[in-house]
């Protein structure tokens, strides 16, 4: 298990290299996410002190860009496409159904740590619209029933293993 109280050497070197340069906060946050898979709150406190940037500014950046994740990603990352084609072909209904089924809003993880739910804009396979991906695997031509069925498959897989 990681401890987030101090910066690991790799990040520490990176931070020291870039902190004198103005506007380096986004880049440093990218490096943190690359390292941990998300941006831990405790690390933000360390960064605030190191970079002499208020915590509030760090979180303004983190919540502005959808790319940043604030929680440890779950085992299965669901990404529902809300690009134009998917949107018109019913993606919002599918998304609502998934949210209700998982009982989480977008951007959050389920309590059992199994799923996270994200929204993305266009995978470039609009012919399959509406689509979603789970850990990178694309599922196309979805409706509500099919979407929830796929979630059940993953749950089943989990109980089997």
């Amino acid at each position: 298990m990681n401890s987030y109280e101090t910066l690991p050497d790799q990040l520490s070197t990176y931070v020291n290299k870039w902190k004198p340069k103005k506007g380096s906060l986004v880049m440093i946050l990218h490096a943190v996410q690359d390292y941990y898979g998300f941006v831990p709150k405790e690390i933000c406190f360390v960064l605030a002190k190191e970079l002499k940037v208020p915590l509030a500014r760090i979180y303004e950046v983190l919540t502005f860009y959808h790319y940043f994740r604030l929680e440890l990603p779950a085992k299965y990352r669901i990404a529902v496409c809300m690009g134009t084609a998917c949107y018109l072909k019913g993606a919002p209904d599918n998304l609502d159904a998934i949210k209700e089924n998982l009982n989480i809003p977008e951007g959050r993880a389920t309590e059992d740590g199994l799923f996270t739910l994200e929204i993305v804009r266009c995978y470039g396979c609009c012919g399959l619209a509406p689509v979603m991906s789970i850990n990178g695997k694309i599922y196309g031509k979805l409706d509500k029933k099919k979407s929830l069925g796929i979630l059940d498959e993953y749950r089943q897989k989990e109980t089997d293993s």
């Binding site: 208020p54 915590l55 509030a56 500014r57 979180y59 303004e60 919540t63 502005f64």
Partner: peptide
């Protein structure tokens, strides 16, 4: 943030 330098309030999200 600017006038009082407290930074308790911030914009979240976009």
């Amino acid at each position: 943030q600017e006038m009082q330098n407290v930074w308790a309030l911030s914009f979240a999200g976009r």
